[in-house]
Design a protein around this nucleic acid. Sequence first.
DNA 1: CTGAAAGCGCTTACAG
DNA 2: CTGAAAGCGCTTACAG
Lengths: 353, 353
Amino acid sequence: MSKKKPTIIDIAHATGLSKSLVSRALAGKAGVGEESRTRILETADRLGYKRNTWATSLVKGSSHMIGVIATDIASTYRLEVITGVEDAAAEAGYTALLAHGRRDPEVLAERLAQMHSLGVDGVVVVSSRMPSGPLSAVARSTPIVIVGRPAEAPVGVDLIHNDDETGGALATQHLIDIGHTRIGFVASSQRAAIRAREQAWRDTLAAAGLSDDFLLRRQNEEDLAQRTMNELVLSDDPPTALVASTDGLAAAIVGAAQDRGLVVPDDLAVVGYNNSSLSTQLRPQLTTVDQPRHEMGKLAVEMILERLAGRTTDRVTVAEPRLVVRDSSSTSVPATPTTVHRDANNAPATPSG
Amino acid sequence: MSKKKPTIIDIAHATGLSKSLVSRALAGKAGVGEESRTRILETADRLGYKRNTWATSLVKGSSHMIGVIATDIASTYRLEVITGVEDAAAEAGYTALLAHGRRDPEVLAERLAQMHSLGVDGVVVVSSRMPSGPLSAVARSTPIVIVGRPAEAPVGVDLIHNDDETGGALATQHLIDIGHTRIGFVASSQRAAIRAREQAWRDTLAAAGLSDDFLLRRQNEEDLAQRTMNELVLSDDPPTALVASTDGLAAAIVGAAQDRGLVVPDDLAVVGYNNSSLSTQLRPQLTTVDQPRHEMGKLAVEMILERLAGRTTDRVTVAEPRLVVRDSSSTSVPATPTTVHRDANNAPATPSG
DNA sequence: CTGAAAGCGCTTACAG
DNA sequence: CTGAAAGCGCTTACAG
């Protein structure tokens, strides 16, 4: 059974000094006799004393903790955002506390309430699915920044997200640049970020005079790769390249294509989004769009510190993504299975590396 | 700027009732007049009141929180263990709080100290890298269970891990069963779990009268897939199948093999460990060993509750893994590039699916 | 059903 | 340099 934890009073008794003095010594404050100090520290060590955070926070009114709530923690992207938060927090003398929210808005809201009553000094929400109501309510007393792109910007909450418009354009333009003219977009959700990428895809195609016919949108990833095969890739009028809304979806599409004997990128080029670890584990490795996620995590903490320092206006920070070209998009134009509607394009004939 | 949070006293003033009564009403206790109760609840709601966890925990001496410390959160395996912990905790009226430990033992120890002074009622360590000293120290006052297989069992700490011996044997025997006789093992670390898998591989080979010459061990994954190619697969005397210590390593090996134009499983069969999401995202999909991870997370909480209820003896729980056969190991024997030392084996000639 | 009082472990002016 | 006292927000016997 667990023994009772030693308190400051125990140390005071053991050393014969007052608890005030013990408290000061333990906090490393000046104005404590050298002898007393060492005696206190030694005794504390011997007793295995750990400061009771509850009591300290209660009296100080601040926990020096920053809460982080994330949906679906098992993601390279989120992990690095979290790491960024941790690093920046540590640097500022804060510690980060995580909560795992799942995708359910209710669970997310519950986690937020938990963080709130835990008394964290700020919270970083790495999700675009947190409901606005609870968010704005908590934001009245605790700074919140969302890393992600919620459907609507909650009042009193800061935002930081990558420039999905630029990212989507980067991906699409890359495919145009290497000679593709039949470029599709597959979306596994209707989140704002995804919609922005889709719009960028459409705009980029339009600027190049290309068709945006190849579009597939679903509310979740279930079977989406299969449908992509059946409804787009294996149709009579197939695209030669696809922009997928995320790496996970891109991976599923590559897998489904390979299952059908197609060669990526020769038969189908695929570009993902997020530069997840998956993108280098697959063969071919995935061309994808990288977000400055560690940086975004650090920025989130900075924005919280600004609020804590007195800023009252809402702030939105947009980070620039960059394209990472790998093997799932080759520099050669595919030998299309069925050569229909093919525009006159000067595609380089370089074989895929 | 953040406003001050409303307290029980604010509600007491607003309703004209005493703070004792407000506290009782808020806690949902009996013995509060119906009218008072509704008035209090409404006022609390209107003011946006959230109970101050610090104060409550301080007076109750328990936070009803269970801390979870994990290395490298971005893993399907760990995520599911964590989810299991969360589910079981919620069921028992506790909430789970995560800390992200990285692989560094010092950082891990720091997180443990943080959890300890946060006053959690128990901690689940999902890592085998947490140093024993800090572990035993904290265990004197707070129940701890490790999900994983540490080098040495820390005194006063409970353990739960999968049966790596069985898992390793399952993987190896499967390769023997489908006709392989030249089966290697590649290890990316020297952790106890990995060593146990390696020993099981050796024992299983010995029982079948096969050689355990094909072995490669390194302290980390850096370049290990490349070395596996150079030192084993592309040698004059290559194995036809490999058991990898983890799915991540297996994926890297499959990738490196494919980069060299080899076909998995025809030229080389590969089996991983952990049934990570990666194993179904790759092509071919990975044969692997699955741990009952959600169950392990739940068990961890149960073991903590046992300690809290009075158990003082250390307990070790071993969970049974199972083999998941996928395409990276086919039922056909490979057409070995160099046919050396090949025993008379009745391998089925079924082509790989 | 309701309220006054004590106390959880710690910190911080305020005296000495 | 050291100590006594008050208070952080909440809960819980103890009275009424």
